[in-house]
Design a protein around this nucleic acid. Sequence first.
DNA 1: AGAGGCTGTCGAAGCGCTTCGACAGTTTTG
DNA 2: CAAAACTGTCGAAGCGCTTCGACAGCCTCT
Lengths: 336, 336
Amino acid sequence: MVTLAEVAQHAGVSASTVSYVLSGKRSISAGTRQRVERSIHELGYHPNAGARALASSRSNIIALMVPLRTDMYVPVMMEIAIAVATTARTHGYDVLLLTGEEGPDAVRRVAGSGLADGMILMDVELDDERLPLLRGARQPAVLIGLPADTEGLTCVDLDFKATGALCVEHLAERGHRDVAVIGEAPAVYERHTGFAERTLDGLRGRARELGVRLLHRPCEGGYDAMAVTLARILDERPGTTGFVVQNESAVEPLLALLRQQGRAVPEDVSVVAVCPDQVAVQASVRLTSVAIPAQEMGRHAVEQLVAKLDGRAGDEVVLLAPELTLRASSGPAPLP
Amino acid sequence: MVTLAEVAQHAGVSASTVSYVLSGKRSISAGTRQRVERSIHELGYHPNAGARALASSRSNIIALMVPLRTDMYVPVMMEIAIAVATTARTHGYDVLLLTGEEGPDAVRRVAGSGLADGMILMDVELDDERLPLLRGARQPAVLIGLPADTEGLTCVDLDFKATGALCVEHLAERGHRDVAVIGEAPAVYERHTGFAERTLDGLRGRARELGVRLLHRPCEGGYDAMAVTLARILDERPGTTGFVVQNESAVEPLLALLRQQGRAVPEDVSVVAVCPDQVAVQASVRLTSVAIPAQEMGRHAVEQLVAKLDGRAGDEVVLLAPELTLRASSGPAPLP
DNA sequence: AGAGGCTGTCGAAGCGCTTCGACAGTTTTG
DNA sequence: CAAAACTGTCGAAGCGCTTCGACAGCCTCT
């Protein structure tokens, strides 16, 4: 392994000069800089990460805590994770992957050991047990998701309340009076994951204002579960003509079942989904949907965190505005 | 931050003693050990990762390089990544997440800086440009996937050739003479990803032996692409009664289309999928499938890598045997 | 022309930990 | 019963880098 000292000797300067060339924290004459850069190149020098971390108390690593669960739409998680990793690199950071398994201990471990300079947490519950630790820590953190109390925390998320409202509006505009909501798996609600409840809030609030009757049913993914859920819904509210689907693995089963029952989409029934665009486009009926901006969320989270690490930002809650894309699963807009 | 020295002082021993208590590399009397452990606990001490890495030239970090692409089934990638992270923790390692974006440079950077002790690469192409670097490096590495030349490399993968053979056998046993293969997206073949081609090898080889006529068609996921592909297949081979599907996002569309055309599964047509069990179970017809053992692959990869790091293992190619699970999408076994 | 300010470079002091050799005290051995 | 072999602990020397203060040389003022 080539060391700083060897580079310095090769270039005929002192070690500190090489360090300053690398970090740019002091001005260096053009000639010296070039000589040093050539030596670095010729010797194939790479700074040692450990030594750097020790001397500077900065590891240039961001920890990303992803949920271990697989009852939520995994591609979204993956997309966020990849966006985080990619964005982090553009700011000179690497990403350490932590699973939810260790829980709060992971937070302690990473913060205590200086392994990472800051952390990003996904899948935050309304009253997450990791939050007190984060509030107390000198470790900057950013949450993807919105807990009940955001005091002293930085959060990034889609505005799910507005998302719910938007879906109802869209269906109401098209004349639907009875709307069913196919929600996430029951477990998601039971552990009080913020986004599911917030979507529901938005749906209910706007439905009340617009005089739409709403029926919400959680639903495991898959064909069988969807069949049972749909049967119950139509039993209870036979006049249901609008569907909002928030569980991506229920989308295709729902469409298949509706088709099978002779209910045409969008002629008889409208469907709006909350899902990544890819899913909406690949479905058997191209779905009108509110996209989950996974990439943007990941990118924003990193940028907030980097800003905090640079002392450029304080706590902040960023809610991304939902956007509804009209596709083939909901009727045309009514004439004005 | 509490340091080793402070713990040592608090416990009334020298710093090296504390270090040996922590690492267990020298024997320590029970009394001393307890005193030190109490001090560690009381002071809330966490060893500094950077200092440790510097002094020991071991970071206790494994780098995991995941593909950036999203044209392959993402949940499998995610499941592998999570299995890697989880298994790594049980061996005392953390996982650094690298995206394919940086390509070979990432390998250089990580190896050069000592950021990680070893690396695991996913989505390896037959003639991957990262391979020469790995062969030359003192950085142990494990591949998930199988390149063309495995000389000097450690690899873990599902035995896709056997998987292909198994699928054909299963359909042949049930009397199918014309079998269509719905493959991955064309791009996957174009970049010569090993598993796709190896599956095809297995399919073709066994088909020839068993006198089965095989028609292979790559297919983008989604409903529309599948519709076009299916139409072409039935046009070219109207007698097709068996399907092998290797693209998970084509599964549900295929089932919907077959249903729509009045071809009953499994009465008229049998379908065998290569996909995670979750997908097979959630489909509108529970699918006979060969599972992709994502967790096991991740776990194996870590264990191989850790063994190499401990000097307990050399290069090795581990191919996991495929297992076919009979479900509702293929006919009953013929009477003996 | 001398004071004061810049620039560019260097030396040295750590950062917190691991690990090697040394050694006092105790136990085993022939 | 002395010699040999352990055991358990300590001190000190780094690991490779960052960063602070110092300073030589030069330029710019009045």
